[in-house]
Design a protein around this nucleic acid. Structure first.
Lengths: 365, 365
DNA sequence: CAGTTTCGTGTAAACGTTTTCTCGCTAGCA
DNA sequence: TGCTAGCGAGAAAACGTTTACACGAAACTG
């Protein structure tokens, strides 16, 4: 018999090579590498040795084909270029890999066609489950996954399919903290830039905003609630629209950080200052938020928590007999105060110059 | 015979169902859906009709298993949370999908262990090819892919394996434009924050910087060339180190935009102003660069071009007989001037206060 | 010590495709 | 009309696994 072939040249290593080299059957090899406990230690050792020497690794496709499980988890996000999602993806992947799964990423870009192809790919690749983190997906998708009897996790909204769970995020807490923070500073006129309202979750956040405002004794002025689209450009445009209004709010709350950064930029272009002219609060607390100029006050939603909850739910739903979704605490949110919030501009100019009239005139304009 | 079952309930549709419904053999179904031209139109029509009615789609795994081709392209990036990469991923995916491929993403996070597992996954999932866009990957990986005889595309550096091509980026052009721009403004003292120097490509960019400096008649002061790590935090830290120096440069060039944003932040914290106190140039031109405060002057490297070149190379290398890598122009780069570059701070104070002599002295040195 | 479990291993049948090979039919040519 | 090509379609063999099943040996039980 020849010496062990150099590892790495790898002329099509399959389970049979391993079996013959370890002088066992392929079934034993399979059982060994799958950690079936009934394999005799002596044989297992031989198998592992052979695996090592031939540096064999199983063919995922064959494995999936016969076992019916791909060990692949789909993750559908809105837009991969929005930094929140890469952070989420990373956390999601960490948790998934830890549990022995890999992930397949799909980005819808808010486009129906792209979304369709995304779903199709997930179905074709036979994902074992899919997390839909797109903060609003057309209903039709649910059906597709339900039809394939694939477990799903949704965020905020979701079908009442037994194979599907929905994660609930406690938007209210963070938004409430934000509004209270603004109120304490003296703000009474607070605007809101939402996500695309065709998304249910954008509506949820907006509703939470309105409720919190009310809880604190203020009412929402609908002129100051404008629709954005969760992008930099959208934030910029939304702020332009607010600046075109006859009366300005003194603070703006945004439904995500990218929007807030867009707003900051627009304010910079308009030679207005943050927080002197406008206070600003974002949402998500992406890593970048700490680095904006000035650093962004924002509501943190832990994507670590989100990812963990999503993967856990998915996997527990995989084995139909398994433990039913283990309790479901809502994902918490809370305010991170940085430097984009301050006293409202009239208060400030009052303090600085004592010239009330000028400020009033400006405001009236 | 029953009516067509409602599409969507899908009780395990396989090729046999289609075959029997179309009253042909499974071979004919296979040929039809793979567009083999020898199928008689009449039969093909029946097949398509059945496919439609049963809404059948082929099992990717079975297909891959027998054909030996997964129609999967690996894409390994440094760090998915660096916004440059999501932009690249998006473009890459667009091109890949257009050509009928899907992508599997791996993020190394500059971590050997993660990189290993990344490669392993790619190998296990039997990617048809892999693009290594990590701007510096440990050499061991090359061998792994070479061993599997998998086509690869590298950036900047690469092995001289026939199955592997390397994309060359014309860093010099953009960096030269940047330095020239600074020189015209009057800058003579230009610092550079590189990527992690253990990466070959970080070295490449640094070398390009030094060369360009020389080409313009300046020499690089090694004290002003500090090592960063392509992250926000790294940029911040690097700038801290520069600020601790006895003498400061008047302009800083960064080897990517995230670094530049970190620098901007540090300058903000130190109450220094951009571009009045420091001019700043980034690299990559991520979308965010337009939104920093002030907007970042940067060198654009089109990730669209990069993605297109990578996918094209990969696919042309897939069919061994196919056209050999079709010409290889280098990826161009060029300067985008925004608002982080201006006159150097002494020039500025000269203009403001009319102190020429001091500036001259400074310049002569 | 015979009979019955228990246990560990091997044999073989799936899994859903692609693809080679074969075969029957039609058409072309002599 | 008879023979050969050519062509389209079906039968069957892969692809590399997992897993149900069978089977022999060892370990109990009575």
């Amino acid at each position: 018999m020849k010496r062990a072939p150099k590892a790495g040249v790898a002329p099509k290593m399959d389970i049979r090579n391993v079996a013959s080299r370890a002088r066992v059957s392929i079934a034993t090899v399979s059982r060994t590498i799958n950690h079936v406990p009934t394999v005799a230690p002596a044989l297992a050792a031989r198998v592992w040795k052979a695996v090592e020497e031939l540096n064999y690794f199983p063919n995922t496709q064959a494995r999936a084909l016969v076992s019916g499980r791909s060990r692949l988890l789909g993750l559908i996000v809105s837009e991969i270029t929005n930094p929140f999602f890469p952070e989420l993806i990373q956390e999601f992947e960490n948790v998934a890999v830890e549990r022995g799964y890999e992930i397949l990423i799909g980005s819808t870009n808010y486009d129906v066609k792209k979304t369709e192809s995304c779903v199709r790919r997930m179905l074709e690749r036979k994902v074992d489950g899919v997390a839909i983190m797109t903060f609003g997906i057309e209903e039709l998708l649910l059906d597709r996954f339900a039809a394939g009897d694939i477990p799903t996790v949704f965020i905020d909204l979701g079908p009442n399919n037994p194979r599907s769970t929905t994660l609930v995020v406690d938007y209210r807490q963070g938004i409430y903290e934000g509004i209270q923070h603004l109120a304490v500073l003296g703000h009474r006129k607070i605007g809101f830039i939402s996500g695309p309202l065709k998304m249910r979750s954008a509506q949820t956040r907006k509703a939470a905003f309105i409720d919190c405002l009310r809880a604190i004794g203020l009412t929402a002025d609908s002129a100051w609630m404008v629709e954005g689209d969760h992008t930099l450009d959208g934030g910029r445009d939304a702020m332009q629209r607010i600046l075109a209004l006859p009366e300005w709010p003194t603070a703006i709350m945004c439904s995500n950080d990218m929007t807030a950064i867009g707003v900051q930029h627009e304010l910079f272009e308009a030679k207005l200052r943050v927080p002197d002219d406008f206070s600003l609060i974002g949402f998500d607390d992406i890593h970048l938020a700490e680095y904006t100029i000035p650093p962004l006050t924002t509501v943190r939603m832990s994507c670590k928590d989100l990812a963990y909850a999503a993967v856990t739910d998915l996997i527990s739903n995989l084995d139909p007999e398994g433990t039913p979704p283990p309790s479901k605490p809502s994902i918490p949110t809370h305010l991170i105060v940085r430097q984009t919030t301050g006293l409202p501009r009239n208060a400030l100019s009052d303090l600085a110059h004592g010239k009330k009239s000028k400020a009033r005139a400006e405001l009236a304009k």
